[in-house]
Design a protein around this nucleic acid. Structure first.
Lengths: 201, 201, 201, 201
DNA sequence: AATGAATGAGCATTCATTCAT
DNA sequence: GATGAATGAATGCTCATTCAT
C-alpha cells in the first residue's frame, strides 16, 4: 500500500467518526477536513468529492462488519446462542463505533442513490448468514418444521430494530435486554427432540 | 375555536399534503405557503416557524391514524384477521396518502429532535392497540401461553418493516405478499383448542 | 409595471454597468449585489440566477441598440452619410456605455450557449438594417451593379471591427478616424450617375 | 541551448496541443502537466506560472504562423490568387491544428492583459504581409489607384472574420464559401490594364 | 391580516501556487 | 530535477427568518 493509500485509509477512519457523530448529511467537507487536521482543499487530494468519501466509509464499515459477523456465526455453538451472539455483536459494534449508523445509511441513500445496490447487497449478506445458520440447525435435526425463509427474515428485521433501539433507547418498542430470550421464544415451538437443540444459556 | 385557529387547521391540512409529497426536509416554507395560496411571511402569522409547522402536522397525522387503527382493531373478528386487517390498514394509509410518511418521520426527528417524545408516544399507542388485542384473544381462550408483551412488540416491529417495504420495495427483506400468513406462522404454535382461534382466511 | 418590475429594471441597469465594467465572467453575483446596494440573497428575489441576470441585460442592451440604429438609418440622407452615421452611432453607444460590450457578448455565449440564437438574431437584425439601406440606394438609382448581399456583410464586419477597436485602440488595424472615407472608398466604384449618389460630406 | 531550455521547448509544444484542444481558460496546469507526463509541481521548474506558459505558447504559435504566411505570400502568383491562398492557409492552419485558436487569443488577453503588445505586434506583421503584397501589385502596374493602406486593413479584417466563422459557423455573417470571389469583388474596380492583374482562378 | 423585501449563514467544488524532501 | 502534499481564495445558490408597511 502506497503512502497515499495509507493516509487515505486513515482519513476514512476519521471521516467515519465524523459522519457517524453528526450524520452524513449534516457533516460538512469542512468538518471532516478539520477533524483530519487539514483544509478542505487538501481533502480533495485524497477523495474526488463528498460522494467518494461516503462511498469509501460505507464500504469500510460494511466490510468490517461482515467479517466480524461471519466469525461469530461460524462458531460451533447451539443455534440460539449463535444468534444471540450475533445480535450482541452487531449491537456492540454499533454502540462502540457508530452511534448513528443506520440513520446514516438512510441518509446516504438519499444523497447517493447509486449506493442502494451496495447497501442492499450488504443486507442480503447478513440475511444469508442467518439463513445458513438456521438451515444448518435444521439439517442437524435440532429443529423440525422450521420455516427457514420466514424466520431468517423475521430475525433479520428484529435484529435491525434492536440495533436501532440501542442507538436511540427512547424509540424502544421491544425490550432488548435479553436477545436470547427473544430468540428462544420464537424458535422453541420448532425445537427438535435432539438434546443439542437448546442453548446453554 | 377562533377564526385564526380554524384557519390554522386548514393550513395544517395543506402543509401535510406538501410535506408528504416532497418529504419534510425537501419541503420549503415557500412550497407550503404557495400551496396555501399565501406568502411565506403570512405563514409566520400562524406558525412560529418550520418546526411549529412540522409539529402540528405530525400531531394531526398521528391522531388521525390512531383513530382509524383503533376502529379496525375494535371489530369483532378473529385475532389473526384482526391483525392482518390492521397491517393492511396501516399500509393502505401510507400508500393512499403519505407515500413518504415513515421516511419523513425519521427526517423529522433529525430536524426537530424535540419531537421524539411525541413520536415515541404515538408508537406506544399503536403498540398498546396490538397488546390489548392480543390480551383479549388470550382472555377469550383463543390462545394459550402466548407471551403477549413480546409478541406485541414483535408484531409491531414487523408491521413497521412491512410498511417501510411498501414504500421502497428494493429494500425488501421479508416477502410481504401475505401478512396473514406471516402472522399465522408466528401465532399458530400458541393457538388454543377453542374453535374461534384461527381466522377465517 | 409593478413595483417589483420597476425595481428589476433598475437592477438590470446597475447589473449592466457592472457586467460591462468587469466583463460577464469575472462579474460575481456578489459584485452586482454590492453595486445594487443589497446582498446576494436579495438579488435572487428579482432574478432566478446569474443566467437570468445575463439574459435580462443582454435583452435590454440589444433592444435599446436596435431601436437607436433603426432611427439613424431611417433618416433621409445619402447612403454614405447614412452608413457613416450608423457606424458613429454604434461606436458612440459602446464608448458611452459599454466599454466591454463585444468581448462580453462572446463571454456570454460561453456561459450560456442557449443565448446564441438571441445574439445571432440581433446580428441579423443589424445586418438587415444595412441590407435594406443598400437595397434602397440601388433601387433609387444611386448605385449600379452594387452586390448588395456581399457589401452588406462586408460593411457589417468592418463596423464590428471598428467597434472593437474603439474599445481597445491598441488592437487597431484599420484607422477608424473617418468611417465616411472608408465607406466611400468601398462604394464609390459603384456610384450611379444620379447626382444624389454621394454624400454631403 | 541548455538542456533545460530544450526540455522547455518540448513542454511548450505539448502545452500548445492542450491549450488548443480545451481552450486557454479551461486548461488547467494539471491538464498540461499530465500531457507532459509530469506533475504540476515539476512544471513550475520550467515555467514561473500559467502566465509564463501561455506567453511561451503564444509566441511559438505566432512565430510559426508568420513563417508559413510569409512563404505563401512570397510565391510569384497574381495578387488575388495570392491573397486567396493566404486566407486558405490561415484557415487551414486553424482547422488543422487549433480549432480554438482565436477564441483562445481573446481568452488569453483576458487572462493576461500584458500580452496585448505581443498580439498586436503579430497582427501588425500579418497586416504588413498583406500591405507589401498589395504594394508590389500596384508597383507592377497590375492595379491602379488602389488605396493600399485601406485595403490592406479591410482584407485583414475580413480574413480575421472568416477565420472566426470557420470555427463557429453559427456566427456566420458573410458567406465564406469562396474567398477568391470576395477578394475579386473588392479589388476588381482597381484592376489595371496589365494582363497579369487578375488571377488564374 | 397580509406581504414584499431583505438578509446571513451555509456548502461543495476548483485551481494556481508554494514548499519541504 | 522531480514530486506529493497542502492551501487559500473564489463562486453560485438555498432557505428559514425578520421586519416595516
Amino acid at each position: 500500500m502506497t503512502d497515499k493509500e495509507t493516509r487515505r485509509e486513515d482519513l476514512i477512519l476519521t471521516a467515519r467518526e465524523v459522519f457517524f457523530q453528526y450524520g452524513v448529511r449534516k457533516t460538512t467537507i469542512d468538518d471532516i477536513a478539520q477533524a483530519c487536521g487539514m483544509t478542505k482543499s487538501s481533502l480533495y487530494h485524497y477523495f474526488s468529492g463528498k460522494e467518494d468519501l461516503i462511498r469509501a466509509v460505507a464500504r469500510m464499515v460494511m466490510d468490517e462488519n461482515l467479517e466480524k459477523y461471519e466469525a461469530v456465526v461460524a462458531k460451533e455453538i447451539p443455534l440460539v446462542d449463535s444468534l444471540a451472539a450475533l445480535i450482541k455483536t452487531i449491537i456492540a459494534r454499533q454502540k462502540e463505533m457508530y452511534p448513528k449508523f443506520l440513520a446514516s445509511l438512510e441518509e446516504v441513500l438519499e444523497l447517493i442513490p447509486m449506493l442502494k445496490d451496495v447497501i442492499t447487497g450488504y443486507q442480503q449478506s447478513v440475511l444469508n448468514l442467518i439463513k445458513k445458520r438456521l438451515t444448518k440447525a435444521v439439517e442437524m435435526g435440532e429443529y423440525n418444521n422450521l420455516p427457514v425463509e420466514e424466520f431468517s427474515s423475521i430475525l433479520m428485521i428484529l435484529i435491525h430494530h434492536q440495533v436501532k433501539q440501542c442507538t436511540d433507547p427512547s424509540m424502544a418498542v421491544l425490550d432488548s435486554s435479553d436477545p436470547y430470550a427473544l430468540i428462544s421464544l420464537l424458535l422453541d415451538p420448532y425445537r427438535g427432540t435432539s438434546s443439542a437443540a437448546g442453548g446453554s444459556h
